[in-house]
Design a protein around this nucleic acid. Sequence first.
DNA 1: AAACCAATCCTTGCATACAAGACGCTTGAC
DNA 2: GTCAAGCGTCTTGTATGCAAGGATTGGTTT
Lengths: 222, 222
Amino acid sequence: MVSRADAVREKLEELIIEGAFASGERLDETTLSKKFNVSRTPLREAFQALAASGLLDLQTRRGAFVRHPAFDEVIEMFEVMAEMEAFCGKLAARRITQNTLHALSETVVLCEAAVESDDINGYYNANETFHFLIYEASGNAFLSKEARKLHRQLKPFRRMQLKVRGRLNQSLAEHRMVLDALVAGDSDSAADILRDHVAIQGTKFNDLIVSYRRASQKAATA
Amino acid sequence: MVSRADAVREKLEELIIEGAFASGERLDETTLSKKFNVSRTPLREAFQALAASGLLDLQTRRGAFVRHPAFDEVIEMFEVMAEMEAFCGKLAARRITQNTLHALSETVVLCEAAVESDDINGYYNANETFHFLIYEASGNAFLSKEARKLHRQLKPFRRMQLKVRGRLNQSLAEHRMVLDALVAGDSDSAADILRDHVAIQGTKFNDLIVSYRRASQKAATA
DNA sequence: AAACCAATCCTTGCATACAAGACGCTTGAC
DNA sequence: GTCAAGCGTCTTGTATGCAAGGATTGGTTT
């Protein structure tokens, strides 16, 4: 059975990640409890959980505020994610099984198909599976869990930069290289490729922000 | 102002880490709420928070169970911690300030004094400061926060292995080497030394567990 | 004697009522 | 006209009551 608090958390999480709320917006308990048809108690439990994963900022006696990570923080998170993936890759190169290798190569095929048909969502999903498989293959359940958590937190920002022209093809090529390194059992190379593969996402994201800021500055001075 | 829920969380956390409850023990809401003189509501909020940090296992309609990480999981956590520290060290070697370097060398002096007087607690505290300073010096606030979190989770297990004979001196020597590498700005070397410094803690912990198990097995067959 | 089923009790999940703090608005004074 | 203080309202924090889902125990059957 799934508790109402859990259901509410899930729904709210989706809304926040989708960007349904402005950053810094205060979430009113009464309003939301009406919207979800639950009392304030399970809603508050959901708030707690969301605060734990960093999506809300709970201030005593003041309320729950939506917390889209600041851009600087996202850059930092990509920096950590890169290193984490590298470590996963390093371990995975030594510990991965034939079965998982097979599953991995299948996700690469899916990615190829998605690139063919310019299906960003399709690519996005296959990409996620690809990375999760590697986390799992690290053979370190704790690491895998943490990596998934961080991956999830970066979800909306990864999505943004996937839309940059040409990135899909490049990303796919990187996936192929990772797969090759894992097949070869070359842990250093797997680590390095994965590190760059993720780091470049942070860089692309940064580029995006800079261009955004330039645009808004121009608009302001015009 | 600090809410009662926060106060309860803090107190409970302390109790769990201290080992006041058996692993897997179920925490009764009514009993505990009486003990802390609060209602079940803030207590339940505290449960949520503790579950988020991994100290409790909340099962729907069944209750809250104390969750001391399994030994295997602790080993995994040390593995991740080692890599995280290595990354902190790598960044810190490039970004550390004179002030922080100075503060670091002071903690080394404190560690020396603690070793002299065989003061495990003193060493323990100075050791913590040493590591936290390095996290901070990474210049990546997100990384620093995550590293502190993991460090905290490993607290009780680190403490255990510090009691092994000769470990204090060895640890101190490693601290000196880390400091040297940071002063020299040698990021690779700082990373490697820190990785080993932490990994060895996991190894020592593992040794401890193995010897425990042997002992209890002997006792059982005797 | 053991196993299974049922009924009761106990515990959690949720709703609601109440208390207390924060924010805003109004009013008065300088 | 502006600033500050006080009061009122609104929102969060906490307590408690009620409902629903497990667990346990006792009885019955094989």
